[in-house]
Structures are given as structure tokens and as C-alpha cells.
């Protein structure tokens, strides 16, 4: 293994980092909004709950790669789509990959939010009602903070999961870290060096995110400042 090749490789691969991060952030944001909508739909009516259930079943039961290919290739089969205003967007691999990542993330995130919203114990909600909190205050001061703390570890795993999943965007020609690595391998035939270097980049990113989420978890833990210590101060 020669050192010059490796030293040249690192900046080449890192040039795909902005796209990887962009896809991760946008898919988490979009997925989060859709996940909230799904939870609203679920709370709204029984039919809505069924629709949300089916959505989650559909996107969690099939591979993301297939979802990306379906969104990227399938619209071309229908002439009414090809002649509509959405076609210029749906022809773009970036739009298709991001859409698939968002829709996929929403299915997983909606389940995390659902579990979080059930975290508030009945006693805490009753206490809030008895204490005279309005429904909105209750949501803001009791249900949401407990839900957030409860959902945080699972959501941390979802963040790193999406970070890794963005690598699939490379199969529809996007030049993220994995896409650049594949292109590099087809030029140099040095699969091990190139893919290992790319793997290290992802590993560093995932470790940083995991560490950040753990810090946040510790900071938000009730044991950090016991109530007695707070009232004494």
C-alpha cells in the first residue's frame, strides 16, 4: 500500500462529504415532518390510523434500495407523468433519492415518536390536569419533554441509520462519499484501500453523532441534578 495514493485519496473522498451530509439532514428534516403528520393522522381517526399503519408496513417491510429504484424508474412508465410539470423534478436522481430517503425515514421516525408519546405516565398527566394546566401547557411542559427524552436513544440510532443509508443514493449516480469511492475503484481497481478509507469516514461521522446524542442524553437525564439538590440551592 503506498502512502501517496492514500494521501491523495482522502481529499477526493471527502469532496463527497457535503452531499452525504446534505442528504442526511434533508431526509431527517423531511422525514420528521412526514412522521409528525403520520402521528396526527393516527390520532385523528380509525381510518387515519389504518392508513398510517399501512404506510409504516409498506416502508419498513421492503428494502430502501427497491424504494429508490421504484421512485427513480417507475414514473417513466406513465406518459401522463412524463408530460406533467413534476417530470423535470422526478427525472433528477437527487430528487428521487432524497424523496425515497425521506419517505423511508418517516416510517421509522413515526414509530419512534409514537413510542415517545406514550412515555408520560398516567400519574404525571393526571397531576398536570389536577394542577390546572391547560391541554396545551400539559403538552408543552409534561408530555413533550418526557416524549423527547424517551425517544432520544432510538432517534440517535435513526440519525446514524440515515447517515449510512444515504450511501444508497450512489446507485442512482449521485456522487456522495460512496459514489466517489465506487468511481475511484473502477478507475484504480484498488477496492480494499478505497472502500476501507470511505468506511473510516463513515465510522468517524457515526461515532461523532453517537457521542453527541449520548452527551445530550446525559444532559437531559433527571439524575443529573436531583430535585433535592436543586431546591437546596
Amino acid at each position: 500500500m503506498d502512502i501517496h495514493f492514500l494521501l491523495g485519496l482522502i481529499p477526493t473522498l471527502l469532496s463527497g462529504l457535503p452531499l452525504t451530509l446534505e442528504l442526511t439532514v434533508f431526509s431527517l428534516l423531511g422525514g420528521g415532518v412526514i412522521a409528525l403528520l403520520l402521528n396526527g393522522l393516527r390520532a385523528g381517526s380509525i381510518v387515519g390510523a389504518r392508513v398510517a399503519d399501512f404506510y409504516v408496513f409498506l416502508f419498513r417491510g421492503s428494502p430502501l434500495l427497491l424504494q429508490i429504484f421504484l421512485i427513480y424508474y417507475a414514473p417513466g412508465q406513465f406518459s401522463f407523468i412524463r408530460h406533467s410539470f413534476v417530470w423535470p423534478f422526478l427525472r433528477e436522481p437527487y430528487v428521487c433519492a432524497l424523496l425515497a430517503l425521506m419517505l423511508n425515514d418517516a416510517a421509522y421516525t413515526s414509530e419512534i415518536i409514537r413510542a415517545g408519546l406514550r412515555a408520560a405516565p398516567r400519574g404525571a398527566i393526571e397531576a398536570a390536569v389536577v394542577g390546572g394546566m391547560s391541554p396545551l401547557t400539559r403538552l408543552r411542559r409534561v408530555i413533550l419533554p418526557l416524549a423527547f427524552r424517551q425517544a432520544l436513544p432510538a432517534y440517535g440510532i435513526e440519525i446514524t441509520g440515515m447517515l449510512k443509508s444515504t450511501s444508497l443514493a450512489s446507485v442512482v449516480t449521485l456522487m456522495d462519499v460512496t459514489g466517489i469511492a465506487s468511481a475511484e475503484v473502477s478507475q484504480t481497481y484498488r477496492a480494499i484501500e478505497v472502500f476501507l478509507t470511505a468506511a473510516v469516514i463513515y465510522l468517524v461521522l457515526v461515532t461523532l453523532v453517537t457521542y453527541g446524542v449520548q452527551r445530550l442524553e446525559g444532559w437531559l437525564s433527571p439524575t443529573r441534578t436531583p430535585l433535592s439538590a436543586r431546591s437546596a440551592a
Partner: peptide
């Protein structure tokens, strides 16, 4: 555990398939 959970699945498969072929 830390390494395998920190690398995209696609890269692990690329490593084994193309890396294996290289070896």
C-alpha cells in the same frame, strides 16, 4: 460491534465482493 454498526451496509458488501476479488 462499533465498526460494523458504523459502516454503511453497501460499503461492507462492496468491501467483501470487490475487495475479495482483489485479494
Amino acid at each position: 460491534g462499533v465498526v460494523l454498526r458504523g459502516i454503511p451496509d453497501l460499503l461492507v458488501i462492496y468491501l467483501f465482493y470487490f475487495g475479495g476479488r482483489q485479494v
